[in-house]
Structures are given as C-alpha cells and as structure tokens.
Design a binder for these strands. Structure first.
Length: 835
DNA sequence: GCAAGGTC
C-alpha cells in the first residue's frame, strides 16, 4: 500500500481524483478524511501538525528569568493530535510513502514533519517527495512519474526560522510583560513580524504628531469657449523650473488674484494633446486581492475569510499565493467559455472571446506553489452564496477578465492660457477606448472635459477664486496599504500578513480603521528601539532570509545560524539588565494613558475606563477610593476612546465596538446628564449599603435614582447600571416630586406625581411596584415581597421554575444559583431565611 | 499564557 501525504485535505481529494481517475473511495479516521483507491491511500494534513515550544519547566513566567529561554531546549510537540495519530496508523500499513506537500519552503518543512512521524513508526519504509506547481492532471501525473527526495536542507532552513522566532519572541515578550506586571491575558508581545509592522504605524503617527502645517494659496478660474465653461488653475515655474500650483506667500497670491479678477479674457498659448495607454491589471496575488477587496469596503480579515470559503466551496483557486503569473496549463479561453451564457457574468466573457488572440497580463512574481487567484469555472448560483460572497466572487471573476482584456486608451488634453504673463492651465482627459474597464468596473473612469481650442484663441475668463489652504499631515496607513508595505519590506507571508494586523488589534496596539496606535504601542516601540532595535527592524527578517538561503544551499548549518542569533539576543539582555523598572514604569504609564478620558469633574484626577469584577465596563476616577465618582457605559460592546473631545467637559468621546452593532456613545458625562439621572432616593436593595443580601461581595454602594431614558420612559434604577440592573417602573407622564416622608420598610422617600391639575401619591417606589405586581397577577408570584427582588429577578427565577415563595423555600440554593444568572447561592439563602 | 507559520 502506498501512502500519499498532502498539506491540506482539499489537495488530498484533488490528487486522489486525478490519480484514481475519479474512482477513489473516502472514509474518515479520527475525524480525518482518507481517500483510497487501487492500493493507494491519500491523506491531507492541516499545515503544521507539530509545533516548537520550550520544555514544561519553562512554562511559568514568574519562575523563569526570560534570559534563560535563550539557551533552553526547543522541543517539537504534536499540535494536531488526531492527524498525527491517523498518520501513524496509516504509516504502519504503508509499503511506500509519498510526500506531496506544497512546493515551497514551508511545504518542505511540513513534509519533513510528516517524514519524522512516519520514521517514528517505521524506520525502513521508502519515503519520496513529489513537487508540482498546480494541482492539474499534467503536473500531478508527471510529478508522480518522476519522484524526488525530500530536501532536508530546505526544511532545516524553515526550522531555523521557527527556533529563532520562538526564542526572540518569547524571551522579549516575557521580559516586557514582567517589567510592566502584565501577566494575564494582557501580556505585552513583540515579534520579528508584528513589531516592525507596529513600528511602521507608530512612525507614521509620530510624523503626524510632529507635523507643522503651512499656509498656501491656490487660484482657480473658469474659462469659456462657445458657452462651455471649464475649470483652470493658476501655475508658475518654481526655482527648479517645475510647474507649481501652490503659492506660499499671501501677498503674491493676492496680486495674482486681483490681476486675474480684473480681466475678462485669456489667450491660449499652448495646446498639448497626447494619448496614454492604460494597461490592464496583473493577476491577483493575496496582497492585491486584499487591496481590491478593500477598495469595495471589505476589511483584510473579512476579504480573506470570504475568499477561503469560496475556495473551499470550489469556486476560486487557493487564496494564499504570491504568484502573479498564470501557469501554462491555464487556458483562458476555456475558462471564459465556462461563463458564456451566464446572466450577469456572461456578456463580458462573450465579448472577451471575440478577440483574435488572448494574452493574459503577468506580474513580476512567479512561484511554484499555487497559481494567482482566479475563478475555477465553477459558478455558484445566487442562492448558494451570501451577497458578500457573491460580490467577492464577482471581483475575482472580473479581475480574471481584466487580465485577458485589452488595454484602455485615454486622451489627455492640456490647455495653457495666458493673462498678463500669468498662466492658467486646464487638464482634460477622455476615455477613448474603455478596454478592460468594460469588464472590470472597479477603477474610476471619470473624465474631465476640456474643449478643443487652438493656440492664439481668446477664451472668456470668469469666476476667479482664491482658496487659502494648509498643508496636511501624512495620512495613516490603511489596512491594505499596510499589507502591501509588509510585502515590500519582505516581512510576513501571504498567509500571515492579514493575521498580523488582527494580532495588533487584539493586543491593544492599534485601534480603529485606518489603524491608529495606542500609547502602549508607542511605548513598546520606544522600548524596543532603545534596547532591542533588531526586533522592530525589517533587517532581522532580511538577515534571516539570507541565513535560511545559506542553510538551504548547504553553506551553513542550522546550528550555526541559531547559535549566532542566540548570541545577539544574549547581548540585548545584557544591556537590558538594569532597565527593567524604567521600562516597566513607561509601559504602565502608557497603559493608563490609553484608558484616560480627561479630568474628573469632582476631584480633578483622571477619569479612566475600568472593568468591574463582573467584566462590564464603566468609567471610574483614578482618585478612587478618595473619589468615588463613576459614569456608566453601555452594556454592549468594548469601549474605544475616540480622539474627539467633548467641548463642555473636556472628556474624550467613547465608541462601543460590537461588530455590526458598533455605535458612538459620545461623551459619557453628557450621556449621563442626558439620561436624566435625577435625585438619588436611597441605597439600592440589590447592591447598596445594608442591602438585604448577606452576600457582602455584592455591597458595591449602588444607589437608587430617578432616571429618564433616551426613549422618554422613566424609572427608578441603580446608579451602578449596567452592573446592577435593579429597576422599578415609573409613570411616563407628570413631574415627579421627592417628598420628605420615608417608607419605614424600604427606607425610600415617598413620591408624588404632578400631572394635570390632579397630583397623586405614588408613595414608596418599592411598595408601589409590589402592589402593582400583586394586582397584576392575583395568582401570580409573591416573590416580589422579598426585599431586593426586582421584576427582572422574578422573571429569571420563573424561568428556572421558581414561581413563588414555596418553590423558593423548597429549592436547593446552589442549584438555583447555577441556573439563574446573577443570583448567588448566598442571596437565595437570605431570601429563604426571610420566607 | 510567549512567535510565526501552516490551515479551517
């Protein structure tokens, strides 16, 4: 029996299909697909099935000095145990093993990992390697006709990368995290790829912060020929003889403006007409696909996720590729034929097939692992895919169309007119031949009309305008620009670049879109620049690539390269030795800066975004416990502090990030005031001082207040909302007066409602609500009679089968607590005692 | 719990 091992299930199935001529059977082993036919079995891995890590004695961050990791052993352990188990099982029954992982460096390493697993159960079985550039009949057949050996040097190059990345990443990440005391989920990470990417964002932010805007002026005027007006702009020659439009001093700008405004005609002195060929775009690699999807509104993460779904469903080719040259076996005409007759995609394909010859465009990068992203010819019907998936699928199809379409042709017309030696110019452009734009409507084809004029012709001059402007700071990188720049810098891979950006978001280093670095990110990059410059520089990757090439070609050993890297890191740690506290202080301060909204109106310290021990967010004062001022935040989403400040309170506005439900909350103090938090009545019976519960952990000092919600309805609610959801209803109409008389039982003031001419006594809001509940359901629950049990709690209890006091006294407190969210067993015991 | 790289 022969065992064939591929990098992924999809490839295993397609190879089985080709080699078996479609006659394979499939079965499942430990949840892994195995394809079988005529004495052969084919199984797909899931990329790496083993990973590198330190031995377990290094796993406690506090017990191990980060520097010790540098010389620690690095072990390989199974990360996909079911796949490893399946591989071992199949290997035992194999008389020959063929490794058919992807044709690139990482594929060679994955193949070597499979080799080691096989060798572990069978020392002698022959193991060979096949390589093919695309999974097509011809390529696969000839690869299996001429099998090769595994390239152990190439695999070792990949292993060197794994080891160096782990040691540098883990040692420095632990060092920074320990120095700042960030040991939980919020550790402070650095790495060979993420940190240079972060530095890119931070450097741009530094430029923006340091930017000093400069004033300049531009002058525009309308020119008219035969009743048709077109816009022109004043220009001059700068000291280098180049055309310049920006006038840097006001007096000159005024003078030009006054002169032009006083004239009513201009003379054409130059007419320049030229045609420009606009070549069609290159085939999609991952980066360019992400960029194009970004232009129609998809984040990098979303674009890749949709592309992976379309790939798995068989509609497009593998979406992770650097290749920008279609392989020889792709026949564009055949592929176009698949779309002929399709309701929305057919017409373009038909028009392209009319060409005499079809020659696809190609980019500079030609790799051996996967083709550029293109449609497979399988077309989903609209019901098979979501709107977003269809939109992305259409983008991929149309990109393929564009790469086999004709160039477009533009005609540019530049007219220069003269007024008292001042020059005006107008640039017109017209799309003469639409070419690929007809089949790829994602690029702008806006024309700018400038009429035909002749030299010496007089044109009417009107509507002269002087515009004062300022130079703008550079713009932040967008997600797709960052991914493109990473590719240019040579960091990350087609499969990881978009994940790296997600990692920076998750780590609290960047926020918003386009991403803006946090203060923490600025501090991490600062610290790295000062002590471990290598980890934030693209040089580290460049050197590593160079070293990996040396290993792959046999000029260097894995240990030469990793030993040298360890020595460099030792040096860094030697320099870091005395700086732990200094670095930690800076990081801690920056972490706090990221949570700061502005001054507390009660004490002048800082208001910070905080998290309650129940996990919800609120705003609290840095002066706590001296200052107990708090402001609520909405219960949905994760708060993001915006750059915008509230004019009235000087506090930053807050946005709540919650996927599609993301919304801007605004200034939390304004919101609290708008929410009409009225007079405080007394302690909250659920979480306030002396609350009825014996569960002292719930005494969080909540108070009841009269509140008006945004929809206009009113209630008595806890000031700790949303941490505490205790609430009592109030009538919608009428003014509410808080009297001096108190309810003895609940220690709350009696309320009077003034509506119309006839004020009525609502009384104690708890008594009022209990009476209301009693009236509402005569046979209903008597649970509200208990102090500290609000309407919500009654509902929750009822859901858990506790309908009245009798149910409650019979029940097991721990069982109820497990069933009912937000109700502790201690609270239930206190109710049982009362009942 | 640390990285980056595969893949889902």
């Amino acid at each position: 029996m022969e065992l064939i091992i591929t990098e992924k299930d999809n490839a295993a199935r397609r190879i089985a299909d080709i080699l078996s001529g479609g006659t394979y059977d499939s079965s499942r082993e430990n949840g892994v697909n195995v394809y079988e036919w005529g004495g052969k079995r084919c199984v797909g891995l899931s990329g790496h099935v083993v990973g590198v890590d330190f031995p377990s004695e290094y796993s406690d961050w506090r017990d191990v000095e980060p520097v010790e990791l540098i010389d620690a052993d690095v072990e390989k352990t199974a990360t996909k145990e079911n796949i490893v188990a399946t591989l071992r099982l199949l290997a035992r029954r194999a008389e020959r093993v063929t490794i058919a992982t992807d044709y690139d460096r990482e594929g060679e390493l994955i193949g070597k990992e499979a080799y080691d697993i096989v060798r572990n159960v069978d020392e002698d079985v022959p193991i060979r390697r096949v390589r093919f550039s695309s999974i097509t009949e011809n390529e696969v057949q000839s690869a299996f006709d001429e099998p090769d050996e595994l390239d152990f040097d190439l695999a070792a190059a990949g292993e060197a990368r794994q080891i160096i990345d782990l040691i540098w990443g883990a040692a420095l990440t632990r060092y920074l995290s320990l120095s700042a005391g960030q040991l939980g989920n919020d550790f402070i990470s650095v790495g060979r790829v993420q940190s240079p990417t972060l530095k890119l964002i931070v450097d741009r932010e530094r430029e923006i912060e340091a930017f000093d805007p400069e004033d300049y002026w531009e002058i525009f005027a309308d020119l008219t020929k035969d009743d048709t007006a077109f816009e022109s702009q004043y220009f001059y020659r700068d000291e280098d003889g180049n055309e310049a439009e920006r006038v840097w001093d006001e007096a000159t700008a005024d003078e030009v403006y006054e002169t032009l405004a006083a004239r009513d005609a201009a003379t054409v002195v130059d007419v320049n007409r030229r045609t420009r060929t606009d070549t069609p775009p290159e085939p999609f690699n991952t980066t360019q696909f992400i960029r194009a999807a970004g232009a129609i509104g998809y984040s990098a993460k979303r674009a890749m996720s949709i592309a992976e779904d379309l790939y798995t469903a068989g509609y497009i080719t593998y979406p992770r590729t650097d290749n920008t040259v279609y392989p020889d076996d792709l026949d564009p005409e055949e592929l176009l034929d698949e779309f002929v007759g399709h309701s929305s995609l057919g017409e373009s394909a038909e028009s392209l097939l009319e060409a005499d010859e079809i020659v696809p465009t190609e980019g500079d990068e030609e790799t051996t692992d996967h083709p550029p992203i293109h449609p497979t010819g399988e077309i989903p019907s609209r019901g098979d895919v979501s709107d977003d998936e269809w939109e992305v699928f259409e983008l991929v199809v149309r990109r393929f169309y564009a790469t086999v379409a004709d160039a477009a042709v533009w005609e540019h017309l530049k007219v220069v007119a003269d007024v008292d030696d001042y020059r005006l110019k107008a640039n017109g452009k017209r799309l003469v031949e639409a070419g690929y734009h007809d089949v790829y409507p994602y690029f702008s084809t806006t024309e700018n009309y400038v009429p035909d004029v002749d030299e010496g012709e007089e044109l009417a001059l009107s509507d002269v305008a002087l515009e004062d402007k300022q130079t703008q700071p550079p713009r932040r990188y967008g997600q797709s620009r960052l991914i493109e720049t990473m590719e240019e810098m040579g960091i990350g891979t087609k499969s990881t670049r978009h994940n790296t950006l997600e990692k920076l978001y998750d780590r609290g280093y960047i926020e918003g879109d386009p991403p803006r670095p946090t203060k923490l990110a600025m501090a991490v990059v600062d610290a790295a620049e000062n002590y471990a410059d290598r980890i934030v520089s693209e040089e580290m990757t460049a050197q590593l690539e160079h070293d990996m090439d040396a290993i792959a070609s046999g000029e260097a050993d894995l240990s030469d390269v990793t030993d040298e890297s360890r020595e460099m890191l030792e040096e860094i740690f030697a320099n870091l030795a005395d700086s732990r506290d200094e670095i930690g202080d800076h990081l801690r301060k920056s972490l706090k800066d990221d949570k700061r909204l502005g001054p507390c109106p009660e004490c002048g310290e800082d208001l910070l975004v905080r998290r309650s021990r129940h996990g919800s967010y609120f705003i609290g004062c840095d002066g706590y416990p001296d200052c107990e001022n708090t402001l609520p935040l909405p219960s949905t989403g994760k708060p993001l502090i915006l750059e915008e400040e509230c004019d009235e309170h000087g506090l930053n506005e807050v946005k709540m990030l919650a996927g599609r439900q993301t919304f801007v909350h605004g200034c939390p103090l304004c919101k609290a005031e708008d929410a009409g938090e009225g007079p405080v009545l007394g302690a909250c019976p659920e979480c306030g001082e002396d609350s009825a519960t014996t569960d002292s952990s719930r005494d969080d000092g909540g108070e009841l207040a009269v509140k008006t919600l945004e929809n206009g309805s009113r209630l008595v609610g806890c000031t700790r909302y949303p941490d505490c959801e205790y609430s009592l209803p109030l009538p919608r109409r009428g003014e509410i007066e808080v009297t001096d008389e108190y309810c003895d039982e609940h220690e709350l003031p009696e309320l009077v409602v003034h509506s119309g001419d006839d004020p009525w006594e609502l009384g104690c809001p708890i008594c009022n609500y209990q009476e209301f509940q009693a009236r509402e359901s005569e046979s209903g629950s008597d649970l509200e009679a208990l102090d500290g049990v609000g309407a919500k709690t009654v509902e929750k209890l009822a859901d858990a089968g506790i309908e009245d006091l009798e149910d409650l006294t019979d029940a097991d407190p721990d069982a109820i607590a497990a069933d009912v969210e937000g109700v502790s067993a201690d609270r239930i015991r206190s109710w049982q005692a009362k009942a």
